[in-house]
């Protein structure tokens, strides 16, 4: 190939060209991951939105149910998990929307790199800018909602896996609704049922530790759901994008 390029154009006119060698699959993953993180950095104003939403709505709970410490600490594990779910869900909508609008999604779909890997890169970037901040901010909310001390480590560990699972399943919904104008609400409707197991195991893990038990079983189950989502979602999302891009 390189030799063919070096010969002067006039000598090899209308000569069959050799095909270029394929790039290793990791290249595209790194490229898209870097690109999306850079984009998130350029739009850092919007970056904080899910996090602020997460914190503000949690602050509404004591206002709504009253400031009694006993009541709040009982509600805390479940409430933090529900808010984390909503925060991630709200941001899932934008996962493929701008790529669709400016035509870069089409470039990803017809790139020689495996689409599921590029999709995984996009989901990873999404988790790094939404799920991870929410996970790290969760202890602050635990303080605000009087979460008993024993629960913090489990909460953070569970949320790290849980928000990643939310992002993975959310990507399927985002891909299916990418070409629809009112995709946001629809996305919530179609992926919400998939979030049930995560919410169940995640909040149960915290609850158990707070009650003095061991969180091993629910955390292991949460990990299993996460592993399952990691296997399923890139392929389902890639298939959905190929189908959904045509409106």
């Amino acid at each position: 190939m390189t030799e063919a390029l070096r010969t002067p154009a006039s000598q090899q006119a209308v000569q069959e060209r050799l095909p270029p060698e394929l790039l290793p699959p990791g290249e595209g993953f790194v490229g898209i991951l870097k690109r999306d993180l850079l984009l998130a950095f350029r739009h850092r104003g919007e970056l904080a939105n899910p996090l602020i939403f997460f914190i503000m709505v949690t602050a509404l709970i004591p206002i709504a149910v009253g400031p009694q410490k006993a009541l709040l600490s009982q509600l805390a594990p479940g409430m933090i998990w529900v808010m984390a779910l909503l925060g991630t869900l709200l941001s899932s909508d934008s996962l493929f929307q701008s790529d669709y609008a400016d035509g870069t999604l089409e470039q990803l779909i017809i790139s020689p790199q495996p689409l599921w890997l590029l999709v995984l890169a996009k989901i990873s970037a999404h988790w790094l800018v939404t799920g991870l901040p929410i996970t790290l901010a969760a202890p602050i909310l635990g303080l605000m909602l009087a979460l008993p001390e024993a629960g913090y480590a489990t909460l953070v560990l569970g949320l790290a896996m849980g928000t990643a699972t939310f992002s993975l399943f959310g990507a399927i919904g985002a891909a299916l609704t990418v070409a629809l104008r009112k995709g946001g609400v629809l996305l919530s409707l179609i992926v919400m049922p998939l979030y049930f197991p995560v919410l169940i195991f995640g909040s149960a893990a915290v609850q158990r530790v707070v009650d003095g038990g061991s969180a091993g079983a629910p955390l292991a189950l949460l990990g299993a759901v996460f592993a399952f989502a990691l296997l399923l979602s890139p392929f389902a999302t890639a298939a959905s994008l190929r189908a959904g891009i045509n409106g």
Partner: peptide, 19 residues
């Protein structure tokens, strides 16, 4: 192999405006 040997420039430029 085919896609590696192809460039497609569609209706929209396919670039990120923020970059």
């Amino acid at each position: 192999e085919y896609l590696a040997d192809l460039v497609f420039v569609g209706h929209s430029p396919g670039i990120k405006l923020a970059l």
